[in-house]
């Protein structure tokens, strides 16, 4: 396999994990536009643990994931006080504060970034991405996943039926934050370099788009969304800015014709040949 394609596969694996991080909160009805902030905490956490304490990636990656999950819990309590546009803005502000702090702390490398010496190879990334995918599929099948889906569809009814809304939403932020942190930690170890500029608002926007375009109804959504928007531009060999123009046109067209995302429950039911069931639902 050429270096070109292994680079794309690495980005794909990281994007898939990151997209699942945003998906888990979105599936409970919360839009997180601060994904880059969580990813940055994971990346810098892994980098600092590796460089300062000499830990191996086998330790730094789980530790950074745990750290980001804890940050997710911590940020969930204030953020869950807000709704709708305010939540989008609060998570956005959170990411801006994180990158702002990184830029102002010389210990974190400031604008120069940090070099990460320990290297994690591509097969590990692909393995983790596969494990995360299976894990999220399993999660959506559990009672917690069902509670999240109920909150997403109608919060009031879910609460009336006895779903502990706050606990489920905090769990969503913890798992989602942890996965975004995991993506960041793997990014740091694979590309051996982290800089605050990478974790820009645009990154948060892209990953949220992967999830919303892929579809938030089923766990196929982020997988399809992230794969589609990472691989198709490469296959089309569209260079530079045209790629983003095509991406933008696809987003607008998608929202016009298929606003629930590429993969919906109805589509899956049809593919499985359960047309009658789909029509009933």
């Amino acid at each position: 396999m050429s270096g070109y394609w292994s680079g794309i596969l690495a980005i794909l694996a990281i994007n898939i994990i990151f997209a699942y991080g945003i998906f888990v909160t979105a599936t409970a009805g919360q839009l997180n536009l601060g994904g880059a902030g969580f990813m940055a905490i994971g990346a810098y956490g892994a980098a600092m643990l590796g460089e300062q304490l000499g830990w191996t990636p086998a330790l730094t990656v789980p530790a950074a994931t745990l750290l980001t999950a804890l940050v997710g819990i911590g940020i969930a309590f204030p953020v869950l006080r807000t709704r709708g546009v305010y939540m989008v803005l609060a998570t956005f502000a959170f990411a801006q504060v994180v990158t702002g702090i990184i830029l102002t702390q010389p210990a974190l490398g400031g604008a120069m970034g940090l070099v990460v010496t320990e290297y994690v190879d591509l097969p590990v990334l692909l393995g983790v991405a596969a494990a995360v995918t299976i894990g999220v599929f399993w999660l959506t099948a559990t009672r917690l996943g069902l509670a999240m889906r109920a909150l997403h569809d109608d919060e009031l009814v879910a609460v009336l039926m006895g779903v502990p809304a706050r606990a489920v939403q905090v769990a969503g932020f913890a798992i989602g934050g942890g996965l975004a942190g995991l993506a960041g930690a793997l990014y740091a170890h694979h590309f051996s370099f982290v800089e605050a500029q990478y974790f820009s608002p645009l990154l948060s926007i892209y990953v949220l788009l992967f999830v919303l375009i892929g579809g938030t109804q089923t766990a196929w959504g982020p997988l399809v969304g992230a794969s589609f928007f990472t691989i198709v531009p490469e296959l089309l060999r569209i260079g530079g800015s045209w790629r983003y123009v095509v991406f933008g046109v696809m987003i607008v067209a998608m929202m016009m014709f298929r606003p629930e995302g590429m993969v919906t429950r109805t589509l899956l039911a049809r593919l499985m040949g359960r047309r009658r069931h789909a029509d009933a639902g």
Partner: peptide, 12 residues
């Protein structure tokens, strides 16, 4: 989401 799409289109 559509407005984010237009953001990408115009900027690029």
């Amino acid at each position: 989401v559509s407005s984010l799409g237009f953001l990408l289109i115009f900027e690029h």
